[in-house]
Amino acid sequence: MEYSYPLSTDWSTQEMVDVVKFFEAVEAAYEKGIKREVVMAAYRSFKEVVPSQSEEKTLCREFEEVSGYVCFRVVKLAKELADGQIVRMR
């Protein structure tokens, strides 16, 4: 897919990497499946960069507009599963 991730110029390089890794985990959940613990680790790192729920919603909405993938659904499913299980969106 060819699109840009929603990023802030205020973030450090490492913070940008953490946010991109979260969006990549969301993509993987839709495209091939990804282990629950990988999604949750990426989400925890994302939340360290984006602690505000309103900013999280804004970024995830922007990501959904360009990718069609819904972050909320992936995180919700990951929270319901046990470690070792695969998060796969249908």
Rank of each mutant, 00 (worst) to 15 (best):
P51Y: 06
G33M: 06
A78V: 04
V70N: 15
S8M: 08
K32D: 08
A28I: 04
R61L: 15
S8H: 06
F63T: 14
I86M: 08
R36Y: 00
K47Y: 07
A41H: 00
P51I: 03
S8Q: 04
K76C: 15
R90L: 10
S54T: 11
K79T: 03
Y5V: 08
R88Y: 04
S67W: 07
R36F: 02
F46G: 10
Y5F: 15
R88N: 05
K21Y: 10
F72T: 13
R88D: 05
T9L: 07
S54W: 00
I34V: 11
T9G: 04
Q14V: 09
V49E: 01
V50L: 04
E56K: 09
L77Q: 13
R88Q: 14
E55I: 14
Q53G: 05
E62Q: 13
V49Y: 01
Q14H: 05
M40E: 11
A28R: 04
E65N: 10
P51D: 04
T58N: 14
Y43W: 13
S8V: 01
D10H: 05
R88F: 15
C60R: 14
Q85P: 12
V17M: 08
M1V: 05
Y43F: 14
V50C: 11
D83F: 09
M40C: 06
S45M: 12
T58P: 02
Y30E: 02
E64W: 14
W11V: 12
A78N: 00
A42F: 05
G68H: 02
K76F: 13
V87W: 01
E62R: 13
S67H: 03
V26F: 01
F22H: 11
E62C: 08
A29S: 13
T9Q: 07
A41D: 15
Q53N: 07
Y69C: 09
Y3M: 12
P51V: 09
V66F: 10
D10Q: 10
V17P: 06
E64A: 14
Y43T: 04
S52P: 08
E80H: 06
V17F: 14
D83Q: 03
Q14C: 09
V38H: 12
E31W: 04
L81E: 00
V17W: 04
S8K: 04
R61T: 14
E56F: 09
S4L: 13
A42D: 05
E64Q: 15
F22K: 03
M40D: 03
